[in-house]
Nucleic acid binder design. Structure first.
Lengths: 233, 233
DNA sequence: CGACGGTTTGACCAGTCTCAAATAAAGTGG
DNA sequence: CCACTTTATTTGAGACTGGTCAAACCGTCG
């Protein structure tokens, strides 16, 4: 029985945009033979903080949030991961439990890749290891940046930055609305505040003409203004 | 003229506690021949955010803060680096400017290692690369944790955690006082708050018997209590 | 229709920031 | 070593931001 082109890692377009592009043909072949494709529905959990993973997830389509529960019971979204991102890689590298939970914000297609393939390539393919290292170093940089934002900036500033980030990372639909439609509470969990305050702050931005809102959908009307707000008027 | 044992990387004890332990004898020899030892006085800056480094610093003694300036003009300390830490590695890996500034909090002895040695080893010694990768992954985990703390916890909670961190990382002197004596404003920059509020919060902790204070020196009197406070009473 | 979950609004309180001024400590030059 | 300058710490008061609770609202789905 013939496999479809798409289902082979060697032919997967996703590979072009993540560290897997550094893998050799032989490694990809191995990987492809043992991977499992999986569909994840919006709201489903890929893994929970504290779990031990036996592999990683490569996102083919859809968007997932990576979040961590604080002692006070609130979720903080640390990162959004879309097409091409590899989930679970960090904890695999340190052989620890995951420190974040991954939840689908949209229906997703992912590939599950058993960890031994990744680990072998890490040991034997220096180019791959270097690519992963670069990626990790780059994530660390943005994490440091986020720390400063969280510690030093107001909710208003963080919201402005968050909206710009959503626009840059996931784009807009034909009408200019943010492609990714987050619930208010998810948006609050990105900004790191309570839902109520998020709503009030968003409303202010609307009154000032920085954004417009239609139901769940948000449009960035004045990016310059948002940038100015984010940097602290 | 004979070199002292200590001045050779091959014999350096520091190496045992960082990624350089994964280097081969030959690499260490090369590195040692080209390194420069340097003394840095308290308050001096090793490098500033935005600079391009042509090497990394390996800390032999003393403690440095890694901080980032926010748009509002305030410094946020992202990390403290003591004996064995390698500064500037992240930006070297991504070939970018540094995203943090490094400032000595005490007199320091550091070794400056030109970047080409590190880069060569990253390309040619997979064990070394893997060690660096593990370290970076582990830093990313703590960074994620810090993000959540900054976003979700009160100044009181963050201070409690910060004090415990100082105790764990740098220990105490014979009287039980924190070894690292930070200025109030440095402490505030770790916690991510204004100096005034930091002082008030610290005073409260003292009244509650969690810490005692003598001048600049701080003693953790009741760690259990501090833990409880950090997790959110 | 009624129940449900997510959204919005109001009111209120607690937490945090800022400015200014008083005090203490640390340097500096004679 | 002292007198003086500068820097760090502490305290107070007031304004502002952000968090919480409760209730109203709305759209969806069974």
């Amino acid at each position: 029985m013939e496999e479809h082109e798409n289902s082979r890692c060697e032919n997967c377009i996703i590979r072009q945009i993540n560290s897997f592009k550094a893998l050799k043909k032989e490694e990809l072949k191995q990987m492809s033979d043992h991977k499992e494709t999986r569909k994840v529905k919006k709201g489903e959990i890929l893994f929970k903080e504290g779990e031990r993973l036996s592999g990683v997830y490569c996102v083919r389509s859809g968007i997932s949030k990576l979040s961590k529960l604080s002692d006070n019971g609130k979720d903080q979204i640390v990162k959004l991961a879309g097409k091409g991102e590899v989930l679970g890689q960090r904890s695999l590298i340190t052989s620890e439990q995951t420190n974040l939970s991954a939840t689908a914000l949209e229906d997703m297609d992912v590939c599950y890749i058993p960890k031994n393939h990744i680990q072998e390539s890490l040991m034997q393919n220096p180019v791959f290891t270097n690519t992963v290292l670069k990626r990790m170093a780059s994530e660390l940089k943005t994490a440091d940046h986020t720390i400063v934002n969280m510690a030093q900036k107001s909710v208003r500033q963080r919201l402005a930055r968050g909206l710009l980030y959503l626009g840059d990372s996931f784009g807009t639909d034909e009408d200019g609305f943010l492609y990714l439609q987050l619930s208010r509470s998810n948006l609050a969990d990105i900004v790191g505040t309570a839902t109520e305050l998020l709503i009030r702050t968003l409303t202010k931005l609307k009154k000032e003409g920085a954004v417009s809102i239609s139901g769940k959908r948000i449009k960035l009307e004045d990016k310059k203004l948002l940038y100015a707000i984010a940097e602290g008027i």
